[in-house]
Simulated assay, not measured.
Amino acid sequence: MKNPITHTADMDLWGHNFTQQLDLATQNMGHDISERLRIARVRALESRPAPMRLMRYRTALQTHGSLSSPGDEGLNLWRILASALPLVALVMGLILVQAVQQELTESDIASIDSALLLDDLPPDAYTDPGFLQFLKVQLVQPGRHD
């Protein structure tokens, strides 16, 4: 990035070159046209904001003497902790979801095992494809045991 002082000097040099080119182009025009162009330039210059007024709001003199906008103070301990907090919350949430899923799976397996051990079933019932669905329906609707 360029130094603001040299950048302003470059812009001033460009502006002077541009006005010289405009002056050269308007020398061969009639008096009334060049007068209207001069009045338009004056109005344009009057309507633009003053550069010092813009500079005062956008920049400030820093303690080390440079003219720049107020910078970031850097990452201190509280900013690091505040930025890491969402990540910690996400990881804790994922661990909680995994624990709940595992607990639900284990309780389903345990309830099916207990139903199998308590019931008197013929051996061919274990090979039936609808047997697992039957057990789940029996567990949801506490029913009658014959």
Rank of each mutant, 00 (worst) to 15 (best):
M1P: 02
M1R: 07
N3W: 04
H7R: 08
H7W: 05
H7Q: 10
H7F: 12
T8I: 09
T8K: 00
T8Y: 11
D10S: 09
D12W: 08
G15W: 07
N17G: 11
N17M: 06
F18N: 07
F18Q: 08
T19L: 13
T19F: 12
Q21N: 09
Q21F: 04
L24Y: 04
L24G: 05
A25T: 12
T26Y: 12
Q27V: 15
M29P: 03
G30M: 13
D32C: 06
E35D: 14
L37S: 02
A40M: 13
V42Y: 09
R43P: 01
R43C: 09
A44L: 14
L45Y: 10
L45K: 14
E46H: 06
S47N: 14
S47G: 08
R48M: 12
A50M: 11
M52H: 10
M52G: 09
Y57V: 03
Y57L: 05
A60V: 02
L61F: 08
T63C: 03
T63G: 10
P70D: 01
G71I: 02
D72H: 15
E73V: 10
G74P: 01
N76P: 00
W78D: 05
W78S: 06
W78Q: 12
R79C: 04
R79P: 01
L81D: 01
S83F: 02
A84T: 05
L85D: 03
L85K: 14
L85G: 04
P86A: 05
L87R: 15
V88I: 14
L96C: 13
A99G: 12
V100P: 00
Q101E: 10
Q102T: 15
E103L: 14
L104F: 07
T105P: 00
D108N: 13
I109P: 00
I109G: 01
A110E: 15
S111L: 06
I112S: 01
D113A: 01
D113M: 01
D113W: 00
L116W: 02
L116Y: 00
L117D: 01
L117V: 03
L118C: 00
D120W: 02
D120S: 06
L121R: 12
A125C: 01
P129V: 01
G130M: 04
L132W: 06
Q133D: 13
L135I: 12
V137N: 15
V140D: 11
Q141F: 13
Q141W: 07
P142A: 11
H145T: 13
H145A: 12
H145E: 14
D146T: 06
